[in-house]
Nucleic acid binder design. Structure first.
Lengths: 229, 229
DNA sequence: ATTTGAGATTGATGCAGCGCAAAGAAGATC
DNA sequence: GATCTTCTTTGCGCTGCATCAATCTCAAAT
């Protein structure tokens, strides 16, 4: 098992309130794993054998319906814990996690979670915060899908993407991992075609720059006003 | 402050793993409050001064958009913890909670949550489970709203309602609190009109019995097959 | 018993966005 | 550099559901 350096993990929200020694104790049980772009970290329905922290890269969580349609549940940003099925009492992963970029994750055996939490209860409270903000996000999405129409939903989704994973470039802010129109459709409950039309429109109006699996937002404020209808 | 009898709270998932003495210690800080039908327990955006456990009745959580549209986030069943803003790091309630029936809730000051969790870490892990299943529900809803059409979504919502709050009657299973077509519309992201048409159709086919703020499901299996498309 | 207001039904109309189709553009592979 | 694959664009017809509007019904209030 590869030893994991403390400096990689110090400062992550999950480990807030732990001393360096305690952190070392926790990291001793982990190992770092590299995932190539487009490789699957874990599959929906598989036994939840591990839980994870994303150190570098980006991971997409998706659910698939019985008739094969995919829905993007969320994107995991560096520093986040994910795959916590065990912590919430699920024996299996509820979604599929795919690296959308070359990524590095810390991996712990799920079986040690109860022991770890008993020893360091702050892990539970920190995870509670993470889960809480995910729940907020999910509810926000439900509200948006209930009340807004496609263009506003796509605008909101794009704004969220650049907030969580935006990289400054000369012309604006770019989503810093490869993302297709299909992905955005699966995030917003529309179709590839509708998203393509909407983004083309925005590009003509100079709000964004498009490209193959690339989006640069030039005018976040104008996008914001579109998002609000 | 009214003393709360241990027998009311023993056996609730939130308190799993606590001894009777520990439970008493926690209940000492709580008081029971009655809420009349249609009264508000807490309001979206208000300072999160308390957290709650529902002992009896039913509570609806809703969010309101800037333009005044309501969305039903979920219904709280007896035994559940709710209003846990503080535990997930929010200074304000993210939704409005309304008693849809005469209800009894236990109330704790939110300020004691950190101290309580420090003393009884199992509270955090139990809350983690609750939050996890809520997150699952919310994701399920996102998936349904992305991929299913109105009739399936209403069928799913109704099945969930009778599962979580169903009462056996001679002709089938009844949702055991008052629920309007408007409420169901707000749960499923459709309109009152669409829900009314759908339920009328089902009633003609003998799947359900309707009534003013009343729904009895006669044929859950047929509803299930509708839900699956 | 009457009133009143909230909830429910039902019809008519319009349109946002989906399904389908076909072609073009940009990387990936060899 | 040629081929292949994946992603994207764009046009068109169609339909599910929202929107608007009118009416009906029942339960609680007085």
């Amino acid at each position: 098992m590869a030893a994991v350096d403390r400096s990689l993990a110090a400062g992550l929200p999950l480990f807030a309130g732990l001393s360096p020694t305690e952190l070392d104790d926790i990291l001793r049980e982990a190992h770092a794993v590299h995932h190539a772009k487009n490789s699957v970290v874990f599959e929906e329905g598989a036994e939840a054998e591990s839980f994870f922290v994303l150190l570098h890269g980006h991971v997409r969580a998706t659910k698939t319906t019985s008739d094969g349609q995919q829905v993007v549940v969320r994107y995991v940003a560096p520093g986040e814990i994910f795959g916590v099925a065990m912590a919430i009492g699920l024996p299996r992963y509820p979604a599929t996690a795919t690296a959308v970029d070359d990524s590095v994750v810390l991996v712990w055996p799920a079986s040690i979670w109860p022991r770890l939490v008993e020893k360091y209860p702050v892990l539970a409270t920190n995870t509670l915060q993470t889960l809480g903000s995910r729940l907020q996000d999910s509810h926000t999405r439900v509200v948006e899908m209930s009340t807004e129409q496609a263009e506003s939903r796509v605008a909101h989704a794009l704004l969220r993407l650049i907030r969580q994973a935006g990289r400054k470039v000369e012309s604006g802010v770019e989503v810093d991992f490869p993302i297709s129109r299909q992905d955005i459709a699966e995030m917003t409950g529309t179709t590839l075609h509708t998203v393509s039309r909407i983004l083309s429109g925005w590009e003509q109006r100079g709000l964004i720059d498009g490209g193959r699996q690339r989006i640069v937002v030039r005018e976040p404020e104008k996008l914001q006003s579109l998002a609000e209808g």
